[in-house]
Design a protein around this nucleic acid. Structure first.
Lengths: 213, 213
DNA sequence: AGGAATAATTGAACTCAGTCCAATAAGTAT
DNA sequence: ATACTTATTGGACTGAGTTCAATTATTCCT
């Protein structure tokens, strides 16, 4: 996910991550994601196919680079959460904080092109990986705040999908889109409200839900 | 998705869908999903590799067969929804109706083995396909009930992920799992409550969200 | 009975992502 | 110089999924 640390010893990097990334995005625009092979990308940079995989674990990782940079800040945003607000409010605030990294001047490729995810297998798989990864981070946060497992898992999922729905609408809105934040607020509010209204321990009305993992 | 209609004309089917399916599940248990190739499956049935793809569009479709049968009933369940209850309650009821098709005596392979989804690319992709397909059905239902686009999309997503969280906990609970319904109820309730509490048209407090598609 | 139409099966060749491995090249530290 | 470290490379491989033309089994029509 993160760029390999520049080594002071050994053979220096001949091709940079950015070169591959730039070539890939050019080609994605020229021939579409599906019409671009890893060979195309490396040929444009003038490097062997295998070198691509030194920098990116998969072709699909290029698609997500911009988004991934932001997703990585979620953990930190959660750690800054105040203990005064409800768990789901804290999560929502963290997601909003991440969302503020986007705006009319910064729209990740993955958002403008999210329709691609519907048709390319690799993107579907890589999208789900990111989904579950972020959900696990939020779920664990909620578990630490004593939310029972089922609600922690479902709540984590729900917050993420609210973010996805917001990002999709925003990304699809074209040049008129403005800031992402109001979209996020609108999508998140019913979720947060629903969980905040939940009486403590209401989750097991007669049924015992075992924790998983 | 659905089995090819038995043709009255032309060469009759030599291998049945069930034979391939049974062989596949046997092999999934014997060697794991990833360790089973399409070749293995067709060799066990005594048929050529290409024949597999006459019956299933992809290897991953076998993984989901049992679940798919139930997912296909969602549209019908939504059509039976009463106009008296709130849109999200109607959706929740439909999901609960689908969920009642499972129980201790019927646990789909995809649920007991859901951990596989975390490690197999094809399963990730095929899981997301099913997720978006069901979400679109629910979203369109909510749109017909005059829910604005962003909330319809986010709400549809949220209901599905609540179902997923419930199904995961239930599937992971082992032989002590009992009925799926209480898990579903618990996971769905805060979502439904959150959306039901939403004042009409509160969604665009000053911002216009364009409909997409 | 003898085609013609229809549909399933098959084999073969192909594409492409991703993995593995051994060889080599290009640097740095001693 | 030499050893060590690390990047690059080529080659072979796996496995899912596609495409296509050829074959085979069956029904319908005459």
């Amino acid at each position: 996910m993160s760029p390999p640390p520049p080594a002071s010893r050994g053979r220096p990097l001949a091709s940079s991550r950015e070169m591959l990334q730039d070539a890939a995005f050019e080609l994605f625009l020229e021939r579409g994601y599906a019409g671009t092979t890893v060979d195309h990308i490396t040929q444009r940079v003038g490097v062997s196919r295998n070198t691509f995989f030194n920098y990116f674990p998969a072709k699909s990782d290029v698609f997500w680079v911009e988004l991934d940079e932001t997703l990585e800040t979620l953990t930190a945003a959660l750690h800054e959460a105040s203990a005064d607000v409800s768990p789901m409010t804290a999560v929502s605030d963290a997601v909003l904080a991440c969302g503020r990294q986007f705006g009319p001047t910064r729209v990740p490729f993955a958002l403008t092109q999210h329709a691609l995810i519907g048709s390319v297998h690799e993107l579907q798989a890589s999208a789900l990986i990111r989904f579950t990864r972020q959900a696990a981070i939020i779920r664990d946060f909620l578990l630490r705040r004593d939310i029972p497992y089922l609600h922690a898992q479902a709540g984590a999922y729900a917050v993420i999908v609210a973010g996805i729905a917001a990002a999709q609408s925003w990304g699809a809105a074209g040049t008129s889109r403005g800031e992402l934040t109001p979209y996020l607020r609108a999508a998140l509010s019913p979720i947060v409200a629903g969980y905040d209204a939940l009486p403590k321990r209401s989750f097991d009305d007669g049924v015992h839900f075992a924790a998983v993992h």
